[in-house]
Simulated assay, not measured.
Amino acid sequence: MCGRFAQTSGRKAIEALVGSLDGDDLPSRYNIAPTQSVAVALVENGVRRLAAHRWGLVPSFAADDRSLPVMFNARAETLAQKAVFRSALQRRRCLVPADGWYEWKAVGRFKQPYLIRRPDRRPVMFAGLWESWARPDGSELRSVAIVTVTASPDLAGVHERMPAALPDEMFDAWLDTRVDGRSLALRGLHPSPVGAFEAVAIGARVNQASNDDPDVQQPVYPPKEPAELAQPRLI
């Protein structure tokens, strides 16, 4: 799963990957939690835009924005089967820029947090699905879910799932709703290659979502683990 992540790269770094984007700049965030606002890249009326969405998808048919669980993740394997995601898979796909995400690994009675990021610090684009929901007062709520896949072998020791990090060559197809979403998900949403990301042990400040500053990513020496629990090398 992906329950916390960071968006710290500026517009220029994002546009270098996906091309020019209309819309306002959004502030750097180091510890984004579900129901908070996130930046997504999408296409509307043929124009690529960077826009703020609530993290936690609210489908258009929802009776209210609290009648369903907070759907901040969507499993790639069942996107085409679940009614809550099926329409968005075809008509409302987006890219969610990220500079890393956080996972917690149980070590005895302690949960060690990890920052998972690219070794070169380059931003990554998560596959996302967005929806528009009409509030009772007539205003619009836009929301997004991040698609997840089985973790790559070198990250599975931290968590069994990971966000679907799209390769560069898939950005255009994911944003192009003329491309069939079901076939795109089946052929393109897979674990990242081994070595694509590094897992860095960090301090416990990240545990509190209200701590939203660069210090939450400060590396620490990880707790010593029993030999029988040793996993593939983590930083």
Results as ranks from 00 to 15, higher is better:
residue 128 G to F: 07
residue 57 L to H: 06
residue 147 V to F: 05
residue 1 M to N: 01
residue 23 G to T: 02
residue 172 D to V: 02
residue 47 V to L: 13
residue 209 A to Y: 02
residue 127 A to N: 02
residue 218 Q to P: 00
residue 76 A to V: 10
residue 136 P to Q: 15
residue 87 S to R: 11
residue 188 G to I: 04
residue 4 R to K: 11
residue 141 L to Q: 08
residue 197 F to I: 11
residue 187 R to M: 01
residue 16 A to D: 14
residue 95 L to F: 04
residue 30 Y to L: 01
residue 235 I to A: 12
residue 9 S to T: 06
residue 220 V to K: 06
residue 110 F to C: 03
residue 216 V to Y: 02
residue 93 R to W: 04
residue 144 V to C: 15
residue 37 S to Q: 12
residue 178 R to E: 11
residue 118 R to V: 01
residue 146 I to R: 09
residue 111 K to A: 02
residue 52 A to Q: 12
residue 1 M to F: 06
residue 88 A to S: 15
residue 114 Y to W: 15
residue 108 G to S: 04
residue 31 N to L: 02
residue 111 K to S: 06
residue 67 S to P: 06
residue 98 A to W: 04
residue 112 Q to L: 11
residue 156 A to S: 15
residue 218 Q to D: 13
residue 122 R to K: 15
residue 18 V to T: 09
residue 25 D to Q: 05
residue 126 F to L: 06
residue 184 L to S: 05
residue 35 T to W: 12
residue 176 D to H: 03
residue 42 L to V: 03
residue 109 R to D: 14
residue 183 S to L: 02
residue 192 S to K: 00
residue 138 G to S: 08
residue 24 D to W: 00
residue 55 W to K: 11
residue 97 P to K: 08
residue 114 Y to M: 12
residue 9 S to P: 05
residue 76 A to P: 04
residue 80 A to W: 08
residue 61 F to D: 06
residue 219 P to G: 10
residue 206 V to I: 14
residue 227 A to P: 04
residue 161 R to P: 14
residue 11 R to H: 10
residue 18 V to W: 09
residue 18 V to C: 12
residue 32 I to V: 15
residue 185 A to K: 00
residue 172 D to Q: 08
residue 71 M to P: 07
residue 34 P to V: 08
residue 172 D to R: 11
residue 221 Y to M: 13
residue 6 A to F: 09
residue 217 Q to M: 14
residue 50 L to T: 01
residue 107 V to R: 00
residue 32 I to E: 15
residue 193 P to F: 14
residue 56 G to T: 05
residue 139 S to Y: 02
residue 204 A to L: 14
residue 70 V to E: 10
residue 59 P to D: 05
residue 54 R to Y: 12
residue 68 L to P: 11
residue 148 T to H: 09
residue 92 R to L: 00
residue 167 P to T: 05
residue 211 N to L: 08
residue 153 P to L: 12
residue 92 R to F: 00
residue 122 R to F: 01
residue 82 K to T: 12
residue 127 A to Y: 03
residue 1 M to K: 02
residue 80 A to T: 05
residue 18 V to L: 08
residue 188 G to A: 13
residue 3 G to N: 09
residue 150 T to M: 01
residue 162 M to I: 04
residue 4 R to F: 02
residue 79 L to C: 10
residue 51 A to R: 15
residue 184 L to C: 04
residue 130 W to I: 05
residue 51 A to S: 12
residue 154 D to M: 05
residue 234 L to G: 08
residue 208 Q to N: 13
residue 159 H to R: 02
residue 106 A to L: 12
residue 55 W to T: 07
residue 82 K to F: 07
residue 158 V to I: 15
residue 177 T to G: 00
residue 146 I to Y: 03
residue 114 Y to G: 14
residue 22 D to F: 03
residue 142 R to F: 05
residue 182 R to Q: 10
residue 205 R to V: 06
residue 28 S to D: 00
residue 138 G to E: 10
residue 38 V to C: 07
residue 211 N to H: 13
residue 164 A to K: 10
residue 58 V to H: 09
residue 178 R to A: 11
residue 128 G to C: 07
residue 169 E to L: 04
residue 196 A to E: 14
